[in-house]
Structures are given as C-alpha cells and as structure tokens.
C-alpha cells in the first residue's frame, strides 16, 4: 500500500478474532498442543533455538494483515502448562491505523502454570494519526511460575506533519497463584500529550515486567545499564507485592524499543533460566 493511502485504508476493519495457543511439557521439550489461529493471526512452527535449554520453545506470532484497523477486536489466549517453557515473540512491529469512531482492542490472556516459564516479547505498536487503541493484558501465575512481558508503542505520522494518534488506553494485570491481584499497570494517554510526557526528543515508550521471586531476577542496575547501552533511557525497580521487576523505557524511536525488548528478554532469560539465549532472528 502506498503511504498516502495508510490513513484511509479500512478494508480489513471490524474483525473479531480469538487465537489460542497452549504449550505443554513432554519428551524433553515444550510442545504446541493447541493452536487456533484465525485470520489475521499466523504463527510459525515452534523452534528450539537454545542448545542449553532445548525444552524452551520459541514461536513467532505474525499478522497476516497490514496491522490493526478500526473496530478490530483481536484476542489471544496463551497458556503455558506445568513445567513447560515457551517464548512467543512478534515477527515485526504492528501498525495501528486511523480507527475513526471505532477504537480497536487487543486483548491478551496469559496463563503460566506451576513451574512453567513464559515470555511474551512484542515489537512496538506503531500508532498512526487518529489511531485509538485499548490494550488489555492479564497474566495468571501458578506457584513457582516465571514470566517476562515486554512491549512498546511508538507514535508515527507517515505524512511527516506530526499529527498525533488518538488515544492509547492500556491495562496489564498480574494475578498470583491464589487469584490475588499483584499489580495493575493502567494508563490512558491522548496522542496529543504523548511526546510531552516522554520528554524532549523522545517518541517511543516501552514497558516490561519480569515476574518471579527475587533470586530469579536480573539486577535492576545492570538491566538499566544494558538498556542505556542500546539507546533506551530506562529504569527498573521492584514491582508491587513482590511480583518481580517493573521496567520503563523511553526512546527516540520504535527501533530502540525493539532492541530494548530484546535486551530485557536476554537478561531476564539469563536470570530465570540460567542461559544466554540465542538471538531471535526476525
């Protein structure tokens, strides 16, 4: 599609789709035992990319359409069953187009069972002018479960006129083994205020949660230093109710957030799984 048409295209709008993925441990690996991926969801087969942890399955989640459109409601249920280990990542950034009067919704439910490891690391959402999006993510942790969530957003006006996106409304809730709320990261930001709240020269934002007990988490100062080194102004601190670590990242563009998300995953996997993970090529 020509950039001039980005704002007008709405051929794939108002989709209500729900994808389901489930991993289970068996035979020394984590198998994808359930896969429901209606259009526009598309996944690769699971890869075992880390020789030191062959049981860690890595799956690339792709969008077969050109992004998220007005009125879309895209749901993903991801379950990692007891003892399994899975990393789901995106193939590329996702564009959110002008949504007009019908905001789009992206809903993710992640369940990490007892003794399981899950990572959901996503390239940034690129919010075009007029895009209004609600992102709801809930995480349910079993006893001894470990999880990494990392994602981001960037504002971009393809016309170069600096027009803002409409509004981003986000909520990430994490629940413990007894169903108790451990943390709720909620925000609403109008596009017109986004750049001001990030600071001079910044246009992208990322957040990450590393969920697990203190002994299985990276050192916050080391994480900040590693993120600084890849061009993200970042901060890491203990999350509420002993849930783990919370990370904020601010960057001049979405590309830096992509690298920041990779860095969070690398350091998180090292602390949680004791391996230095192979680069997830995209």
């Amino acid at each position: 599609m020509k950039p001039a048409l980005y704002g007008e295209y709405s051929g794939a709008a108002f989709r209500e789709r729900r994808a389901e993925l489930a991993f289970a441990q068996g035979g020394g690996r984590s198998a994808l035992v359930r896969q429901v991926t209606p259009y526009p969801f598309h996944v690769t087969r699971p890869f075992a990319l880390d020789a030191a942890r062959p049981d860690l399955a890595t799956l690339y989640l792709q969008s077969a359409s050109g992004g998220i459109y007005r009125g879309d409601r895209l749901e993903l249920d991801l379950a990692v069953r007891p003892g399994a280990a899975a990393h789901v990542t995106s193939q590329a950034a996702t564009v959110v187009h002008h949504t007009g009067a019908q905001r789009a919704r992206q809903i993710t439910r992640l369940s990490v069972a007892e003794g399981a490891f899950a990572a959901l690391t996503l390239d940034p959402l690129i919010l075009f002018p007029g895009a209004e999006l609600t992102v709801e993510t809930s995480v349910h942790l079993g006893p001894g479960a470990l999880a990494i969530l990392a994602e981001g957003v960037a504002a971009h006006d393809f016309s170069g006129a600096g027009r803002p996106f409409g509004e981003l409304c986000a909520e990430t809730s994490v629940f413990g083994p007894d169903g108790e709320l451990l943390l709720a990261d909620r925000s609403t930001v109008p596009g017109a205020e986004f750049a001001e709240l990030l600071g001079p020269g910044m246009a992208a934002y990322g957040s990450a949660l590393l969920l697990g007990p203190e002994g299985r988490l990276p050192d916050p100062a080391a994480l900040e230093a590693a993120l600084d080194a890849v061009g993200c102004l970042a901060a890491a601190c203990p999350a509420p109710n002993g849930a783990g670590l919370s990370v904020r990242m601010i960057a001049p563009n979405g590309g830096r957030i992509v690298t920041g998300v990779e860095t969070v995953f690398a350091l998180g996997a090292e602390a949680m799984l004791g391996i230095s993970p192979a680069r997830r090529r995209k």
């Binding site: 909620r186 609403t188 709240l197 990030l198 901060a235 601190c237 904020r248 601010i250």
Partner: peptide, 21 residues
C-alpha cells in the same frame, strides 16, 4: 474522576527510579 486508578508519567517514573539509587 476516572473509574479506575491509572497513570502515565514515564519521564518522572524513570527519573525517580534511577535517582532512588
């Protein structure tokens, strides 16, 4: 007031967290 407690202040969050050490 909004129905839920929410906030978006990344610049101040980052500044405060980094400075806390």
């Amino acid at each position: 007031p909004p129905a839920r407690i929410e906030s978006f202040s990344p610049r101040l969050d980052v500044a405060a967290i980094r400075h806390a050490r």
